[in-house]
Design a protein around this nucleic acid. Sequence first.
DNA 1: ATCATATTCAACCGATTGGTTGAATATTGC
DNA 2: GCAATATTCAACCAATCGGTTGAATATGAT
Lengths: 131, 131
Amino acid sequence: MMINERTSLDQTYAALADPTRRAILAYLRNGPATVTRVAAPFEMSLHGVSKHVRVLERAGLIEREVRGRQHFLHLCATPLEEATEFTEHYRAFWEARLGAMAEHVENKHLESQRNTSKPKRPIKKRGASSQ
Amino acid sequence: MMINERTSLDQTYAALADPTRRAILAYLRNGPATVTRVAAPFEMSLHGVSKHVRVLERAGLIEREVRGRQHFLHLCATPLEEATEFTEHYRAFWEARLGAMAEHVENKHLESQRNTSKPKRPIKKRGASSQ
DNA sequence: ATCATATTCAACCGATTGGTTGAATATTGC
DNA sequence: GCAATATTCAACCAATCGGTTGAATATGAT
C-alpha cells in the first residue's frame, strides 16, 4: 500500500530532530533573515543549509517570502503548538510522578549508590548498546 | 571526523517523529506494559515494535524492567521536559505575534482574498513541492 | 549585454531508518 | 528434559536523510 501520509506532527518533530534546523529556528526568533544570512554560522555548504530550510518550510515551521533574488525566512510558530500539545499531555504524568515518587526516588537513588553491583530485585537493565 | 554525538534533544525529537512510537508512549501513560501488550494494536510484526521500543528506550523516553521473560516498559518523561523547554521559547514568540499582529493579519487576509492574482508587492510564494 | 549574487534543482553518496524474516536466548509450565 | 512463551539479535531491503558537487535560474548592478 505504502501510504506516505506523514502527519504534520511527524514532520514537525522530524524537522526539530536536527541541531542545524533547531539553530536556524532559534536564529529566526530575532526576526526574518535571508538564506545566506541564516547559513553563515554553519560550516556546511549553502546548499546544505538550503535543504534544511526546505525541510523546515515543508514542516510549516518557517515561511519564505521571496523579494527580488533573496528569500526572507521567518518563523511560523503555529505548528509547534500542536507539538507542545502532545508533550503537554506528559507534563501531568511526570509532575504527578515526580511529586508522588519524590521520596521513593530519593531512597532508590541512595540505595543504588550503595550497591550498584547487587540490586535487590532481579532487574536486568539491558539497553541501548549497539545499533 | 564523523562525531556521532547526537544530542539527547536530537534523539528525543527523532523518537517523537514516528506515529507508532507516539502511540506507544500514549499507551504507556495508562501504566507499564509488556512489549507484546504494547505491540498488540499494531499491524506491524512484533519485531518491528520491539525496534521502536528500543528507539524510545535509547532516547530515554521509556525504561525497561525485565522481570522473568517479560519486559515491562514504563514512561520516563523527564527528557520531554527538555523538549518542551525548547518549544516553550517559541510560545512567547507566537503569542506576541498572534497578539500584536492580529488586526494586521486580518487586513492582510482580506486583502489577499481580494486580489490573489495581483499582489501588491512581488511576493512569490514558492514552497514545498517535490522532495 | 555581461557579470556577480542569491538561491534552487538534480544527481550522487554513505549512513540511518522502518520494516521484514529467521535464528538465538531466557524463562515458564508441564 | 521438553515445549511454549517473550523477547532480542542479526541480516537484509527499500526508502529517506544529511551532506556534497555541478549546473540552472532569477535578479541586480555596471
